[in-house]
Computed example of a mutant assay.
Amino acid sequence: MSPIKLAIVGLGKIARDQHLPSLAANPNYQLVAVASPNNKLEGTPSYPNIETMLREQPEIEAVSLCCTPQVRYEIANYALEQNKHVMLEKPPGATLNEVAGLMDLAQQRRLALFATWHSREAAAVEPARDWLVGRKIRKVQVTWKEDVRVWHPGQAWIWKAGGLGVFDPGINALSIITRILPQPLVLKDAELHVPSNCETPIAAELTLQGPGGLPVRAEFDFRQTGPQSWDIDIETDDGHLLLSKGGSVMHVDGKQTVSAPDREYANLYARFAPLVRERRMDVDLAAFRLVADAFMCGRRSVVDPFIE
C-alpha cells in the first residue's frame, strides 16, 4: 500500500517537536510539503499558504493542521473543498459551530476529518478507563498547572480571543476525564481569571457534575513555577486512582501500575491513516463543549497584566 502523501500546515513549535518526528517514524506517510507563512523546512518544498501549496502539489492527499485555532477553520474548510483529508490539532477550531461546519462538509465529500486529543493517547488513560469500570466514583480533582513562559514562549495568539488561554493546556485534562469517566459531565460553575492586558484567562476553576451529583473540580493555572502539575485524582468506593504527568503515569492506592514513554502523537498518526484510507470521521467534542460552556457561563475577574 502506497504511503499517504501528507502536508503540514503551520510549522511552529508543536509541529517541529511532535508532528515531524512522528511522521518520520511512520511508514504510512510521506511528508511532501509544508505551508507556513514564516517558516520553511529544509529539504521539503515549503509554501507561504495552503492555497499555493495545493496548487503546486495537487497530488497531496491529506493535511495536518498545526496552525493557531483562530485561523484553523478557513484552512480546514479550504482543504476539504479541495478534497483533502484533514487532521486537526487541538482544539479543533475557535468555535463549536466552526467544527460542525467542517463535519458537514467532510461528510458530504466522504473525507476523513480527525479532531485530535493527544493527551487521550497518554499511556495510562485507557488503563484508567478500564480500572474505573464497575467502581462508584465519589470525587474527582483535576490539577493542571504549568508555566506559560516555558511551554508557550512568545506565543501571543494564546492571549487573543479564540486562543483559549489557560484552557489550551486545560482542555487536555478535560479530554482525559471525558474519556475515562463513565458519565457525561455538565458545567455547574466557572471562575475565569483574565489578565488586564489579555482577552483569555490565565487561570480558571471549574465545577463539573456527572449524573447522581458526582463532583468534579478542576483547577487550571498558567502561573505555575517550579514543578509542573498535570494530575487527575479520583476517589472511588474501591480504591484511589491517580493519573500524573499528563496521563502517562498511573497509581492505584499509592502503587505505580503504569508508566511509559511518550507516544501520544505517534498514536494519533497511527489512528489517522485508517481514517484516511476508509474515509471516516473521528470528531469528539465533549471536552471542547465544556470549555465553550465555561466561556459562556463563567464569571470573569481581572488580574494583574501578563508580562512575557
Score class of each variant (00 low, 15 high):
Glu278Cys: 11
Thr236Asn: 04
Ala270Gly: 10
Val166Gln: 00
Thr236Ser: 04
Ile171Glu: 02
Thr225Lys: 07
Pro274Tyr: 05
Asp168Tyr: 15
Gly170Glu: 07
Pro182Thr: 08
Phe295Met: 05
Tyr269Gln: 05
His193Glu: 06
Cys198Thr: 11
Asp293Thr: 07
Leu185Pro: 00
Ala203Glu: 02
Asp231Glu: 12
Met250Cys: 01
Met250Asp: 01
Gly254Ile: 10
Asp233Arg: 05
His251Phe: 15
Ser244Arg: 04
Cys297His: 15
Ala173Asp: 02
Val291Asn: 00
Glu235Val: 14
His193Gly: 08
Glu264Trp: 13
Pro261Asp: 06
Gln228Gly: 08
Ile177Asn: 00
Glu191Val: 14
Ile176Val: 15
Ala204Pro: 04
Ala287Ser: 09
Asp282Lys: 10
Gly226Glu: 04
Gln209Asn: 05
Asp253Thr: 09
Arg263His: 15
Asp253His: 09
Met296Phe: 15
Leu268Lys: 01
Ala292Glu: 09
Val249Lys: 05
His240Arg: 13
Glu278Gln: 15
Met281Val: 12
Asp221Asn: 12
Pro195Ala: 05
Trp230Val: 09
Asp282Val: 10
Gln256Pro: 07
Arg289Glu: 10
Ser175Gln: 02
Arg279Asp: 10
Leu206Val: 07
Leu187Pro: 02
Ala292Arg: 04
Pro195Met: 03
Gly213Arg: 07
Arg217Cys: 13
Arg289Asn: 07
Phe272His: 06
Ser244Val: 09
Asp238Tyr: 10
Pro215Val: 06
Val194Glu: 00
Gly298Met: 02
Ile176Ser: 01
Ser196Tyr: 08
Lys255Asn: 15
His251Lys: 12
Ala270Lys: 07
Arg271Gln: 14
His251Asn: 07
Pro274Ile: 11
Ala286Cys: 11
Thr236Gln: 03
Arg279Asn: 14
Lys255Pro: 08
Cys198Lys: 09
Gly212Lys: 10
His193Met: 13
Ala294Gln: 02
Leu268Met: 06
Gly298Lys: 01
Val283Phe: 06
Ala286Val: 13
